Amino acid sequence: MDTAISHPLSKNQVTLVGFTFALLAAIGFSAKAIFVKLAYVYPVDAVTLLALRMAFSAPVFLGLALWFGLNKMSPRLTRNDWFAVVGLGLLGYYLSSLLDFLGLQYISAGLERLILFLYPTIVIILSALYFSHKIDKKTIIAILLSYAGIALVFLQNITLTQTGIVLGSLLVFASTISYAIYLIGAGQSIARIGGMRFMAYAMSVASIATLIQFAAIHPLSKLQLPLQVYELGMAMAVFSTILPAFFLAASIRKMGSGRTSMIGSIGPVTTIYMAHLFLGESITALQIAGSGLVLIGVLSISRH
């Protein structure tokens, strides 16, 4: 009888696997805006749509949180850890998602993804303001390039007479600030608790908060929606929430957070092309130029 011999993966194979996971995560997260815009064709509001996304994804994260809680090998959480999980979960996954969904009612999927992609610049700026971290000239130039790119895409959307673009952009930018604050605050907690465990707890908190909000402001009759909305909500939960979260964690384990974040920069590009393919959003030279400036700026900060 033949005996199977397992060989460890080579360094190149590990990198390829990590790259594949990072790419799938970036595409999955980018597709969220597409699902949201497709759902808004039907009579559904942001709170209800977000509740559907969280309701479909909550069992996975609650199950994962329970597994970590019962695992005796996991470090025991202190009261401060729980405060961090609840506070940052509400800030980074609940509030940020709600503001993003509200903003997508008014702006294109491509512009939304570019604004969200500014979060590294906001992390730098907030760190400088609150922790007295110095910003060198190269970083300042990178930040200016990023916001110049957003300005180009923003102006192009205005020329297309898109209504509510200012409100939508401000809502998504507020979402980006919320997520940046979450990243700054989550660093120590993630180091102590573990990335996947922290994410499971934080997402569980956000899911519960979202469902409570829906129950508080909407009657159950609001759930009488076309089947297509439920299908899009399920797709959003599976392909733009659950799977990307696991792909991202797997990629970081394979090749580290630095390389993973670099590959994630493909997100805005994939959103623009998916928006063109599925939503009929135009791709113009001005949009490409603006996107290029944002990518150059953010990548420069990431490498710094």
Rank of each mutant, 00 (worst) to 15 (best):
D2Q: 15
A4W: 11
A4M: 10
P8S: 08
L16C: 09
G18N: 07
T20K: 12
T20D: 12
F21I: 11
A22H: 03
A31T: 13
K32M: 05
L38Q: 08
L38V: 00
D45M: 06
V47T: 15
A55F: 01
F56W: 01
V60L: 02
L62T: 10
G63R: 13
L64V: 02
L64E: 03
L66D: 01
G69T: 07
L70W: 14
R76E: 05
L77S: 03
T78C: 02
R79D: 13
N80R: 10
D81L: 01
W82E: 00
G87D: 14
Y94K: 03
D100P: 02
L104Q: 08
L104W: 11
Q105T: 04
A109T: 12
R113T: 04
F117R: 06
P120C: 12
T139Y: 09
I140N: 11
A142L: 06
N157F: 01
T163V: 03
I165E: 04
L171H: 05
S178N: 05
Y182D: 13
I184P: 04
A186G: 14
S189C: 13
I190R: 06
A191I: 10
A191G: 13
M196T: 11
M196Y: 07
Y201L: 05
P219D: 15
P219M: 09
L223V: 12
Y230A: 00
M234P: 00
M234R: 00
F239V: 15
T241R: 03
I242Q: 07
L243S: 02
F247W: 14
A249N: 11
R253L: 06
G258N: 08
G258M: 04
T260I: 04
I266G: 01
T271W: 01
I272M: 15
Y273S: 10
S282N: 04
Q287V: 07
A289Y: 13
L293P: 05
L295K: 14
G297I: 01
L299I: 15
